[in-house]
Design a protein around this nucleic acid. Structure first.
Lengths: 97, 97
DNA sequence: TAGATAATTAGCCAATTATCTAAATAAAGT
DNA sequence: ACTTTATTTAGATAATTGGCTAATTATCTA
């Protein structure tokens, strides 16, 4: 889970996830949207993949990236739940006094 | 907001927040719970303060740290909302096709 | 098979981060 | 005015990160 938060710490990577929300996209098209070199983007993708936030699928010479929402959900809402945030009934115990 | 995610990227800092959930605590008592030096913890506190995740209050020679839940909430649920996670009706537009 | 296209890996560098010890600051108590 | 206690700042260092260019790998097409 620490990998997920580490991945989310970078603004470029957070924006990659947001763009993937619209649907799967190739590394190249995704990279075009950012003002950094492709190898740099490739490194960001690797971090996201390592964290499980994205999955890949090959299509010819392209690599298609897919958002893995469930990992994002588990990390964000899971952690929020520890603090009683989110859906209200996040963690089993609430106001014990 | 990037500051918040940067702050959350470190496991020690996430645990500090979790401990503060139980209530305000002095830097010293908080630091005791972790296997690193006090100056190191002080640096972590500074990151959390910078991000707005904690606030401080002096009490004699001690500095009391308080959790600022609203900043945590805004960051976690705000970002989760972008992906349609959380309360379900997070962002105004949903399934447009 | 040669050439073009797409993506990653290799190798490098600068900046940041996490950590430490030692020193400085701040507030109380004696 | 000292001394103790609590915390932060200074200064150093090793590891990590984010960025680049150049080279490599993989796949397709002519």
């Amino acid at each position: 889970m620490s990998d997920v938060f580490k991945a989310l710490a970078d603004p470029t990577r957070r924006e990659v996830l947001q763009r993937l929300k619209a649907g799967p996209m190739s590394a190249g098209r995704l990279a075009e949207a950012f003002p950094v070199s492709k190898p740099t983007m490739s490194a960001h993708f690797a971090v996201l993949r390592q964290a499980g936030l994205v999955t890949t699928q090959k299509d010819g010479t392209s690599v298609i990236y897919h958002l893995n929402v469930s990992v994002l959900e588990e990390a964000l809402l899971g952690f929020a739940g520890v603090f009683g945030l989110g859906s209200g009934a996040a963690s089993p115990q609430e106001e014990k006094s």
